[in-house]
């Protein structure tokens, strides 16, 4: 374990280079290049702003600035979805490398998460700029953004390591991931306020709902970006228990995922 971590550290530059490659290759041969990463959320924001702000007034949610609410959930969700969708197949799709060169294989999914994190960060900056223009009331908790992002990144890395390793042996996972992500999206308070859940679902279902780590992570982002105490809904279902639980779960997941991945990476080359 210690030597594995050491070798991962030795290959940190590879991680950086692969991350950079992931970011670059995505926008290959396009004139605007990385600017697309920023245009994307901007357009999304404008569409939401116009659609929900002007045409359909979202009623009964108690949410002002619904567009900001949506964005503060969708961006971190995309961080998760983009990371996992790419990471699940990364060992297989880089088969030519895996079969020909030795390097710590965990670098591959980590690079996917890194590239997605970079995009997430850029897009968040766009969102913040937009909020500035709107003269939005920023929450002082926004300073915690890097910390919340780190928490989410930990969780994602854990899941990504599991998926990437398992997918070498069971390729179905690649397809399954896409579907599960779609269902997972609706089981997380992104497009609806969490009060929908707490008002309408029976107690036992709520308990299951709150087992989802992403519920807590997205709520954290709502808290620090959307600022619910000013814009409503006033009742937030963030709990200390939930935050601590999610943190412990994420850290544990990274450790387990890493152990799982490294214990199997010696057999990757045979199975690809």
């Amino acid at each position: 374990m210690k030597t594995k971590l050491k070798s991962l550290y030795q290959y940190r530059e590879l991680l950086l280079n692969l991350t950079r490659k992931e970011v670059k290759v995505k926008y290959k041969n396009s004139v605007l290049g990385i600017v697309w990463s920023m245009i994307n959320p901007l357009i999304m924001l404008l569409v939401f702003y116009i659609a929900f702000g002007l045409f359909f007034k979202v009623q009964g949610t108690g949410i002002e600035f619904f567009a900001i609410y949506l964005m503060s959930g969708i961006l971190p969700w995309n961080f998760l979805a983009n990371s996992l969708n790419l990471a699940v197949g990364t060992v297989v799709s880089n088969g030519n490398l895996v079969k020909k060169v030795y390097f710590p294989r965990e670098v591959l999914p980590l690079a996917n998460v890194g590239a997605a994190a970079f995009n997430f960060f850029l897009q968040s900056l766009v969102l913040f700029a937009f909020m500035l223009i709107l003269r939005y009331h920023f929450s002082p908790w926004l300073l915690m953004f890097p910390l919340v992002m780190l928490l989410e990144a930990l969780f994602i890395i854990g899941v990504a390591l599991f998926l990437a390793a398992l997918n070498v042996f069971y390729r179905d996972l690649q397809h399954l991931t896409e579907i599960v992500l779609m269902a997972w999206f609706w089981m997380t308070p992104i497009v609806y306020p969490i009060t929908y859940i707490t008002d309408k679902l029976p107690g036992w279902a709520q308990q299951i709902y709150f087992l989802n780590p992403m519920t807590h992570i997205i709520q954290l982002f709502h808290e620090i970006i959307y600022h619910p105490s000013v814009y409503g809904p006033t009742t937030s279902y963030l709990s200390t228990k939930g935050i601590i639980g999610t943190t412990a779960f994420s850290v544990g997941f990274v450790v387990l995922g890493y152990l799982f991945f490294t214990s199997r990476e010696g057999r990757f080359a045979e199975f690809i």
């Binding site: 530059e13 280079n17 692969l18 670059k24 290759v25 290959k28 030519n96």
Partner: peptide, 21 residues
């Protein structure tokens, strides 16, 4: 092995060398 077709030769040198550690 591991050359990225969409990157330039120069970028690939750095990428490939870092793959080699």
């Amino acid at each position: 092995a591991g050359f990225q077709p969409d990157l330039t030769g120069k970028e690939n040198i750095y990428l490939n060398a870092s793959v080699l550690g």
